[in-house]
């Protein structure tokens, strides 16, 4: 019964190596590394100038826009992938070839409409 999971054994092995190695390194650092913290060591260092402000500034919503648009087109690629894998098989089926091409074309056109809307509304410009 383990045979069906065989392709995953290398993945599992590398995951185990990663976890164990990271754990060992963190543990060894925590146990062996000398720690003598002072207030001066704790403040952020920037070219010898004392910090004048908190580094915790809020980020602009523009970054969030970029992220959400990335997510949408990331999902588009997710749907393209199973289509691409099967496309040769779809083409071999004469009754289905046009549907297979048309469905993905419609999918891409609908998402391109979103891209066009975004461009017209100026969501792509940074200012």
């Amino acid at each position: 019964m383990i045979e069906i999971y065989e392709p995953y054994i290398p993945v599992l092995l590398i995951a185990m190596i990663v976890v164990v190695l990271a754990g060992v390194i963190l543990l060894a650092n925590g146990l062996l590394g000398p720690k003598r913290p002072t207030r001066l060591k704790g403040i952020p260092y920037e070219s010898g100038v004392d910090p004048v402000d908190s580094p915790r500034h809020r980020f602009s919503v523009k970054f969030y826009m970029t992220a959400i648009l990335f997510l949408v087109f990331d999902l588009e690629v997710v749907f393209l992938y199973p289509w691409a894998v099967n496309y040769n098989g779809f083409l071999a089926d004469p009754g289905f070839a046009a549907t297979a091409f048309g469905s993905m074309a419609a999918f891409l056109v609908i998402l391109a409409l979103g891209l066009f809307y975004e461009y017209k509304r100026g969501a792509m410009s940074w200012d």
Partner: peptide
């Protein structure tokens, strides 16, 4: 799904802009 993603794009643009 394409329509859903389109709505997500438009919604994000409308909310942020």
């Amino acid at each position: 799904t394409a329509i859903l993603l389109l709505i997500a794009v438009i919604g994000a643009v409308v909310l942020a802009k």
